[in-house]
Computed example of a mutant assay.
Amino acid sequence: MKILNFGSLNVDYVYTVDHMVQPGETLASQKMEVFPGGKGLNQSISLARAGAEVYHAGQVGEDGLFLKKLCEENGVDCTYLKEIPGKNGNAVIQVDQSGQNCILLYGGSNRTLTKEFIDEVIGHFDSGDLILLQNEVNLMDYIIERAYEQEMIIALNPSPYNEAMEACDLSKVTYFLMNEIEGGQITGKTQPEDILDVMLERYPDAKVVLTLGKDGVVYRDKEEQCTQGIFKVKAVDTTAAGDTFTGYFLSGVLGGDPVAEALCMASKASAIAVSRQGASPSIPWKKEVEETEL
């Protein structure tokens, strides 16, 4: 089985602040740093550092060529990563004293995909291969349709959840990896059990992973349910927590690990990531996760 991650690559401008800026407020930041990021890039690097073989498909602009180099340095196959003229996607990120963040996205090169490029990439993959998607690129509905026609297994992190996500046929998705907010937006429910009930009622063959912040994570499919608590660490920056979890979880289950074991490994990797600054630079390697006591 091959893993294709069709996703975003961003340049992250990270501002350290006392609190999130309020409407009408001018706020001085303590520092500004530039990091590689984007949910797609973060999840590809997480998959690769967890030991999976992953191909990244997407587009980088003229100011994002270093992102392609970073992927290659981390063992991500960039055969389907296209360089185009113009501005790369970027994000402006505020990180407060507790490590919480808020993010403003500019799509740039991530949102200029064409159907011809999508067809070309997906044509290189076979029935039973897995495609991982997030909602930071355009033509999401088309990518899902083409992957389904190719009989690929579809894993989706529905973030950010918006009208483009609502246009997608989610019945074609096998793995949903989402937090409580995204789960609530899809189902209209607020309680974790209610979210899971609705998800499995609508998509009975799906495998749903619902992250719950300080309350850990719960997995449910039509045959089993598993929960995993958090590993307590001092949070510095939560930016790549979910992406780290996604990569490690998928690497585990696709590698044959039981769900409970994959949840534990992914949660531990995510805890290590939030104890560090930055997005992709914070993602640990598998050996480190295995050897770290939390």
Rank of each mutant, 00 (worst) to 15 (best):
R111N: 15
L156W: 12
E151H: 14
P158W: 02
Q150S: 14
D141A: 15
Y142H: 10
Y142G: 01
Y142L: 05
H124I: 10
G107W: 00
H124D: 15
L156Q: 07
L156P: 01
I131T: 04
M140N: 09
Q134G: 03
M152Q: 06
A155W: 01
K115Q: 14
E151A: 15
N162T: 08
L113K: 03
I122M: 07
G108Q: 14
F117M: 14
D119N: 13
Y142C: 02
M152G: 04
Y148D: 13
N162I: 09
F117I: 06
L139I: 04
L139F: 10
L105I: 15
I153C: 11
G123Y: 08
L105A: 11
G128N: 13
S127R: 11
A155C: 09
I154M: 06
I144C: 02
D119I: 01
G107S: 14
N157H: 03
Y142M: 05
S109F: 06
N157T: 08
E145L: 06
D141C: 02
E151V: 06
L133S: 05
Q134V: 06
L104Y: 04
N157E: 14
L133H: 07
D119C: 10
N110W: 02
L156A: 15
G107M: 14
I131C: 07
E116M: 04
I122Y: 02
I154R: 00
I118L: 15
N110G: 10
L130W: 12
T112A: 11
S127T: 10
V121E: 06
Y148Q: 04
E136L: 07
L139D: 09
D126I: 00
L132W: 00
F125C: 05
M152W: 04
D129W: 05
T112C: 12
E116T: 14
E145C: 03
D141G: 00
E120P: 01
Q134C: 05
R146I: 11
E149Q: 14
A147L: 11
D119Q: 13
N135L: 08
M152R: 04
P158L: 13
I153Y: 13
N138L: 11
N135F: 09
D129T: 07
L132S: 05
R111D: 11
P158C: 11
Y106P: 00
E145A: 14
L133R: 03
L113R: 03
Q150E: 12
E149H: 08
I122K: 00
L132K: 01
D119A: 13
L104D: 01
E116L: 06
V137Q: 08
E120Y: 11
Y142A: 04
E120H: 11
L105T: 14
I122S: 00
T112E: 13
G108P: 07
P158A: 12
D141W: 00
P160I: 10
